[in-house]
């Protein structure tokens, strides 16, 4: 980022210039070797429709809720013991005791567990609200069909995360809800009994079930969700977000419906209605 001077630069100016180069050096280094800086810059400074609405913050709100779950979950995993065996000293199951210990004795443990417990509900609610917004906006239509499907998969995974997490405190509610839930899976034809057997890890719900649910809850499903969210966000950035359908200046509106084009100086209309296919060939993949 060298500055050019019409006259000989003063000492102060030269020092300033060297400072700037020093600060930019790591970024330039990274950019030259990865292109990541350009990527982030594209993400931040890409245009979105000028009429985006508050409802369109629900997706990033869901992302925030997911991050809260991930962070609090990692902390909980440091203190939680997924064991259904009985602690000989107290006669209580080890998993249940570790939950009570986290909530009552670990510093700020109640906050971490409370945020994880209630954050789960908030996450599910936000996913449903976000899905409702996408439906309302008709934003699942061409070319965003694939992103809708990715979204539905995230929703299903999110609910499975809730189901597997519910058992972990190993209390009465948790245990019996899982008994019923697993038996429900068992009623499905063909795969049902096999799936129920797999989830239980045996004939009865016990220690094997708990460790299985724990591994699904903290490894398998979160990894799947992270992968799906990455794909989801990639598609959002590539395809852009939709204008509210009721907006007077919705991006991509039919030419006939608009005010005369002259009312908006500087607006280019490279695509006449009948030449859509050509326009897409000129702009491969619709990238801008």
């Amino acid at each position: 980022m060298a500055t050019t001077y019409r006259r000989t630069p003063t000492k102060a100016e030269l020092r300033r210039q060297r400072m700037e180069e020093l600060v930019n050096y790591p970024l330039d280094w990274l950019e030259e070797r990865s292109g990541l800086v350009g990527g982030v810059r594209y993400f931040l400074f890409r245009n979105v429709p000028s009429d985006v609405n508050w409802m369109q913050t629900l997706g990033s709100a869901a992302l925030t809720a997911f991050l809260v779950q991930a962070i609090t979950g990692v902390i909980l995993a440091m203190y939680y013991t997924p064991s259904a065996s009985t602690d000989p000293a107290t006669g209580k199951p080890v998993a249940w005791e570790s939950i009570v210990n986290i909530t009552d004795h670990v510093t700020m443990g109640w906050l971490v567990r409370g945020m994880h417990k209630w954050g789960a509900s908030v996450f599910i609610i936000l996913m449903f609200l976000h899905m409702g917004r996408v439906f309302l906006f008709g934003a699942y239509k061409y070319p965003r069909e694939l992103n809708w499907i990715v979204g539905v998969l995230i929703l299903v995974m999110g609910m499975m995360e809730g189901f597997t997490g519910y058992l972990l405190p190993w209390d009465q509610t948790a245990y019996w809800a899982s008994v019923v839930g697993i038996n429900l899976n068992g009623t499905a034809p063909f795969l049902g009994p096999w799936l129920a057997q797999f989830l239980r890890g045996g004939q009865e719900i016990g220690g094997e079930t708990l460790t299985r649910f724990y591994s699904l809850h903290m490894l398998v499903i979160p990894a799947a969700i992270i992968g799906l969210i990455t794909l989801h966000l990639y598609l959002v950035i590539r395809l852009g977000v939709t204008s509210p359908p009721w907006s007077k200046e919705a991006a991509g509106m039919e030419p006939e419906e608009e005010e005369p084009v002259t009312a908006r100086p500087g607006l280019t209309r490279p695509v006449p209605r009948t030449a859509g296919g050509t326009a897409m060939q000129a702009e491969p993949g619709g990238r801008d």
Binding site: N47, T57, Y142, P143, L267, T274, D288
Partner: peptide, 27 residues
């Protein structure tokens, strides 16, 4: 549909606003 999406891309380019700081502020 393709024509409409191309129009969308052109509109966003011509009269959209940058994600940062506008949309990101709300987010």
């Amino acid at each position: 549909a393709r024509a409409q999406f191309a129009r969308y891309k052109a509109d966003v380019k011509a009269r959209g606003k940058p994600f940062y700081p506008y949309a990101m502020f709300h987010d």
